[in-house]
Amino acid sequence: MQLAKSANSLIRLGIDIGGGTGTFAALMKIFYNVTMLTTTLNVNAPYSEAVAARGLVPLHVPLQQRLPVFDGTMDLVRCGRAVNRWIPLPVMEFMFYDVDRVLRGGGYLWLDRFFSKAMDLEEVYEPMIGKLGYKKVKWAVANKTDPSGLKNGEVYLTAVLQKPVSR
């Protein structure tokens, strides 16, 4: 939110992809008065019901499906831990292009703790994301670790990217 504020960009509406029980959406509503739609899948738990019970908006949308919102209407799309290297590449690419469809010009794509192998991040995911032509506002990579040290050569990416205002 500080990045958007420093750029005089207003964030009012967004989507949290893979938002679980809606904690991020709840925090955005309480602290910033931002309405976040939360995509969920009821896998081993009633996530949609949990989001709705919090007074938030759940969307039961798998990654292989278009987001059910109009083009250019979102100020922010956040991809949390559900979006990571386990998603097949064609599905990931489809998701990024659909995110591009729903983001308004000047809107933000936030990849929050995206994890992959370090080599895959450089050779596969960075070029895939780069095709969108977004401005890198923040791009931070850190080693993924567990108590025994580095974990399988994996890294976490936290990135905030801004969609160009016009193309």
Rank of each mutant, 00 (worst) to 15 (best):
M1V: 15
Q2E: 15
K5N: 11
A7L: 15
N8G: 10
N8M: 12
S9N: 11
S9Q: 14
L10C: 11
L10N: 12
L10S: 13
R12D: 07
R12L: 13
D16F: 03
G18P: 04
G19C: 06
G20V: 11
G20S: 11
T23N: 07
F24P: 06
A25D: 04
A25F: 05
L27I: 12
K29E: 13
K29C: 07
V34M: 06
V34E: 02
M36E: 06
L37A: 03
T39Y: 01
L41K: 07
V43Q: 05
V43T: 10
N44A: 13
N44E: 11
A45F: 15
A45D: 09
A45V: 09
P46H: 09
P46Q: 11
V51S: 00
L56K: 03
P58H: 03
L59D: 01
V61R: 03
P62V: 04
P62T: 10
P62A: 05
Q65P: 06
Q65R: 13
R66W: 12
L67E: 01
D71C: 07
D71R: 09
G72S: 11
G72H: 11
T73Q: 10
V77D: 00
R78D: 04
R78N: 14
A82W: 00
A82L: 07
V83Y: 01
R85L: 14
W86Y: 15
P88A: 10
L89G: 05
V91M: 08
M92A: 13
M92D: 04
M92Y: 11
F94M: 07
F96C: 05
R101T: 07
R101G: 04
V102W: 00
V102G: 00
R104A: 09
R104D: 07
G105E: 02
G106C: 05
W110T: 04
L111M: 12
R113A: 10
F114W: 02
S116K: 02
K117F: 13
L121E: 06
M128C: 09
M128T: 08
I129D: 00
I129T: 07
L132N: 03
G133L: 07
Y134E: 02
K135S: 14
W139E: 04
W139S: 03
A140P: 03
V141H: 05
V141M: 02
N143M: 13
N143E: 15
T145A: 05
T145D: 08
D146I: 12
L150D: 15
L150Y: 14
V155L: 03
V155G: 00
V155E: 01
L157G: 01
L157W: 05
L157N: 04
L157P: 02
T158S: 10
T158H: 09
V160F: 07
L161C: 06
L161M: 12
Q162F: 08
P164K: 09
R167H: 15
R167P: 12
